[in-house]
Design a protein around this nucleic acid. Structure first.
Lengths: 237, 237, 237, 237
DNA sequence: GATGAATGAGATTTCATTCAT
DNA sequence: AATGAATGAAATCTCATTCAT
């Protein structure tokens, strides 16, 4: 896998195939179909389908790193609000949801698959680290009251993930807003120092729905525009 | 499916097969192997494997009802503690975990499968209802401070489910205790009226690990003993 | 594999497929094509193609037993002559040759395949035992001069097998007659007591070519007639 | 294929690959892996894998010629003893055996492959010629009694080859010694004139095992040293 | 000469489901 | 009610060979 373009195009195909078929029903052919290459080529670049998907997790992980870096200069409260939005984006973003459903299926293979689990773990470690960093920065900046960043991070991540999962799997969208509001009530109200507040346009209790500023494409990183063009071209053939 | 015994024996076989193989790798043969009947018979009783598994969800739902009923007479705080334990049982219960992993896989099929989703939804409705009932009972009894039961229920369920899922899929057990303690800090401390408290032996912050009083078998309901005998008999053949 | 007819029909199909395609090029489909059943059925009865072929070796072994039994009542010299004929049948028997070529390919997998090797070994043990028995019987009957049956058996089997192999693989038919005559000269002349002799019509040095009395079908046992009819019927469809 | 070095390095790679994988499982990649060049290059030099292997047979044939020439000056009895040793080397020479197993697999393709068969035939012709030459020289020199060199050569080659094949394929090493002793008893005892005898240290009946003076490398000819160095270099990269 | 990338044509196996009995 | 036998439709992976560079 010398050429990064090849990898990227396979990863994009895997992404699209996962969105359309889900993980359980995903076949190597589905991925190849979203490429301008043959199925055999997948096995030229990867030893197995599992191998390809493990690299897909790695790929997502790399992209996530970049997106995190972009928020590094925001003030803690702002970063925290962005963090909440990442998770609790609106239920109307269908493409994004279908991808997250597939990712959820893939995540459930962690217990059976060491390589998947390792990648998922790395991703989890990173996620907690960032949230803890935000919380600690807020403490230092005097914007947050005293609390234990580790448990708070764990609770927030678990609650957001749980809300998303329940919303996706049973289709009850209310979970998103209920958890947004519930965490605002139970956690953020207490967490924010008296003179701090969630940005007016980001208050979890007043913002009825995410403003879609983080579009689907965000999941795969920044170079969305060109990629979509490429896809379009392929479809025209 | 006239004979309830037949249904029960198939359900039990499905349960065992799910524990051993997971949902994704589950085959009709795996279920039949844990029965004293043939694979063909499964298709006599059910139109398809999906049909059988939809009934399995229904079956679990029925059993869950019974277990809920058993707690109906406990005082609200005690019931709440029991509720927490249901979710955050210790990471050492391997049999239980393997079943929950399989259930998690199955849950991820909700978005693709209307019948699964309907059952999951019913189950979710029931779960929230119970928790809300507990919270409302506590409010009425003056044991809980004023709060919104709906959002609180949603947050707790989401947080507990999210913790379990992350623990299971990435194998990071710390989530269980962190969320147990985090919810104790952020929610329960505020929730409990000044003169009320979690039962001494149930305080989420002091109880290092669940006491295993809810054993694996609980997942399938009360009639565990006979079932095991049945299994033993089959193995002897 | 309860029904012996099914096994027999699969074995016959394997036999025919081996004759036509050889072992190296043999596919499961080739075998299925010579059956009135589907390819899947082969995997219903056998865990793998290798498994099927191991059973094929076993099957041949069973049939060989029967053929050996038939010669048990012949006098030693006559049996020995029959033995020679088994090996050194004429080069013109094409069907038989193509089967033996395939068997030879299969035999070369012995070093890589424990199950094949075990069956081949069993078959070798049986073959040597029979020849040694013939030689010992001849000694007791005073028809053979004193010699060591074990080494003689080994030399004869090796020489006959080697002749066959070289004839088959390089297509030099002369090996058959040369080894027939060579063993007659070096071994049998010395072996036979003065007053004994190879049956007039069986003297290895005068019989220019095997009389085809042991036809191809012999390889698969006695029930050739019906089997061929069955094959014919299938071809007509 | 202008450069003989390139050919030699491919031939050596083919040899090593055959030893490790056998013929049936041999892939072009396996050969390329033992080269410092790419798989594509094999197809630049040869039209097909079959073509390469046909040349490999040719290559072996050329080397064999050289080794035969080396024995040309020995007295007939000595040459005959050397001949026996070539075939009946001890069972402990594992590297040599793995190569001979692969060659045996390759030989079984003769009936399906004209080019292979032609090379094998040439090799067989040469082998018989040499043995017949030895036998005739011995007759002329008065060291051997009167006999027919053609049939004797055929019997010996067949017996030795058969012994080797049975030893390799079923793993019964006894064949080697039994045939060594059997031929000594039935053929050589009669063959040698009264006043001639097998070299004391070469008598097939007293020499329990080949003295390994003909090492593995012999199979590929004399230039072993450099070849090993080359291999070592490759491994270091 | 030399190679990385690419592919078509299989091959083996799997499995839900059906059907005759 | 019960089952052994049977199958079609896939899915993963392999590999000799080709080709653009």
């Amino acid at each position: 896998m010398t050429d990064p373009d090849v990898r990227t195009s396979i990863m994009r195909a895997a992404y699209e195939a996962l969105c359309e078929h889900g993980y359980t029903e995903l076949t190597a052919q589905d991925i190849a179909d979203r490429t301008d290459k043959s199925k055999s080529l997948l096995f030229y670049h990867y030893d197995s389908k599992e191998d390809l998907l493990a690299d897909f997790l790695e790929f997502l992980f790399e992209r996530f790193d970049d997106r995190v870096a972009e928020t590094r200069d925001l003030p803690p409260v702002e970063r925290l609000a962005t963090f909440v939005d990442w998770f609790l984006y609106g239920p109307g973003e269908n493409d994004r949801q279908s991808f997250h459903v597939a990712m959820l299926e893939l995540r459930t293979q962690g217990p059976y698959n060491d390589r998947f689990r390792e990648k998922l773990r790395k991703s989890d470690d990173q996620l907690r680290e960032i949230l803890e960093e935000i919380l600690r920065d807020g403490l230092e900046a005097g914007e947050f009251r005293d609390h234990d960043p580790e448990t708070t991070a764990a609770v927030l991540i678990a609650a957001f993930d749980g809300a998303r999962i329940r919303q996706l799997t049973i289709g009850r969208d209310a979970y998103l807003e209920e958890v947004r509001e519930g965490t605002a009530t139970w956690v953020f109200d207490d967490l924010l120092a008296e003179d701090a507040s969630f940005p007016a346009d980001r208050d979890p209790r007043t913002l009825p729905e995410n403003d879609h500023q983080h579009r689907l494409a965000a999941d795969l990183g920044a170079d969305t525009r060109e990629a979509d063009d490429e896809t379009a071209e392929r479809d025209r053939e």
